[in-house]
Design a protein around this nucleic acid. Sequence first.
DNA 1: ATTATCATTGAGACCGGTCTCAATTAGTGT
DNA 2: ACACTAATTGAGACCGGTCTCAATGATAAT
Lengths: 363, 363
Amino acid sequence: MKKATPKSRSVTVSDVAREAKVSKATAARVLGGYGAVSDKVHADVMAAAKALDYRPNELARSMTTGKSGIIGVVVGDIENPFFSLAVRGISDAARAAGFNVILANSGEQIEVEKAAVRLLIGKRVDGLIVTPAESRDISHLRDIYRSGRPLALLDRALPDLDVDTVTVDDRDVAMRATRILVEAGHREIAYVTAVDADGGRFRDLTQIYTSSVRERIEGFLAVCHDAGIADPKRHVHLGATSPEETCRIATKLLSPSDRPTAILASDSLIGLEIFKVILALGLSVPKDISLITFHDADWTSVTSPPITVVDQPVYSLGKSVAELLIRRLQGDTRPAERLVLPTSIIERGSVGSPPKRSLETAG
Amino acid sequence: MKKATPKSRSVTVSDVAREAKVSKATAARVLGGYGAVSDKVHADVMAAAKALDYRPNELARSMTTGKSGIIGVVVGDIENPFFSLAVRGISDAARAAGFNVILANSGEQIEVEKAAVRLLIGKRVDGLIVTPAESRDISHLRDIYRSGRPLALLDRALPDLDVDTVTVDDRDVAMRATRILVEAGHREIAYVTAVDADGGRFRDLTQIYTSSVRERIEGFLAVCHDAGIADPKRHVHLGATSPEETCRIATKLLSPSDRPTAILASDSLIGLEIFKVILALGLSVPKDISLITFHDADWTSVTSPPITVVDQPVYSLGKSVAELLIRRLQGDTRPAERLVLPTSIIERGSVGSPPKRSLETAG
DNA sequence: ATTATCATTGAGACCGGTCTCAATTAGTGT
DNA sequence: ACACTAATTGAGACCGGTCTCAATGATAAT
């Protein structure tokens, strides 16, 4: 009487075995699809399973096999189209190989990233794909490695960590983008990026702990330097971590009379926000200011003028890193691979020659 | 000699117990944080755990407790900003309550959706959030319900399924949007949506199995009808399921001389593609054609002119549905709730009066 | 001092699968 | 017909936790 409804206990192999009048081991063999059984028994068990509506408990299965069939992915921000496209690439590749994806986003905060990694390891994911927020503190990533699970890095390399890595040629493409601006005659070029360090004040590259960001700045500075632009560092603006911050930075950047004649935006979210500010201030692209943004986001092709962009193979980035990881999961023991995907620049209409004022500075 | 390296077997409670010289049960109590133990033993076990670098196996934990701490989410397409924003809302709410999210996308295909649901149930997720692709075939959703796991519906209601549901007032907002167009003088208004049925030919509402889509069309037709527009059904275009298809539809729609004077796009991906075609054809918005799109996507505010949009509270949609599900997970037994979130229209510059040609048709 | 009460602890069953190993049955060669 | 190998099947250990229940020791009440 006291015994409440048995909470619909799920059907187990034992239940099926009993129904089919065979041993648990035999039922498990056909249900799990491993051992060999006679045709008759196979049919009996399948019939019993169907009759009872048996559903395997993947949890129990993973516990004994040690494999979960899940790939853990930790990205900076799912909402950023860059990441959502990369994640799409990852999950397509994963599904094609029979794996599932469990997603966590770090918000680019190292502590959140660590917690996410710890949790995913706890859940016994088969492997992890991470876009490390920092290169300083990678103890949690070493832990993954130490736990025997393969790790692959997406978009950001870590020189100290010898694991499969897929990045794009950030440094090179940043140079090409900057060169386009320089060749159009610009001397006052601002670079706006998301990473936050020392309250947005850029001193030197050693304060940037995200490899892709650092490489881009490196490329930018190199070309500026080659072009004889004095102290290009002052044109690097950090801290565009949210639309609000970006708006603040862009407004400050564009208001004074000594504003740059061109801006290079480090991702499409930043580029969009800057473009909005440009619009709001009544400035015209490219007459008053030229603009190039990283990532060929959808909005960049429908503005007037359409925006010149750095087109990274984002989907491939995700697909490739997943494929690399899966290969490892399947027993590949080749040394770690570092794939660098080529990037192109799509020249549209947002780059022009600087307004005359800038000629005074020309060397 | 033959015995290979023990593949770094992970540290278990038993190992910690041995190290701390207590029983497995006692070690488990402090490690699992449940029973009561003396301070000394607690300290000993913690020390041993730290020394051995113990990491709990969540899999084993979930298997005994029956709870995995995971919410399964099945959406139509992660890449669609609508869904990625909703997922962001879900995962924020989930994390706040200590849950994790495992994501699967169905590509709006019912079979893929079924497989995803089956898999997630197999993984013993605590609850599921689904955007059902079809209202016809919901056997798999009933299964969830039957398995004792709570289910919550996102963006699309299912009249036959009495579960927590969060939607927006699609019908009403579609009416408001259509009315804006009608009041601007339009009589030839096209409605373009993604759902695919009968090769894109729209006959009547019974062929639409996605509630949100149906409701929007319903609202659209109702207002057209009230305005005395003859046979508005011919203006409903289905099948805009990919950028390519949308482009095809839009090109066909916009080329002939009897093209509509206004278009209502059912999501931002469709709106974007249509806008691109408009641009490519050299037409001008809103002089030649007026455009309203669902979803306040980022690109809609930076075009010239900026686009009038239906602004759905997408983030809240995700957040609310997750909160509802979590409440249920925590033992709430109230009857299923059907939340309908209010939607607004942001009027920007893409609606104008129709070009003169349309006056001939005016009633 | 003696017994009842309570806090700690240990032993071992259990979750639902996989998998090893031995036992049983069937098939083969001579 | 008889020994021998191959194919099936069953019993039970195991994965790494949780959790029940009984045993132990200590403290409190009589």
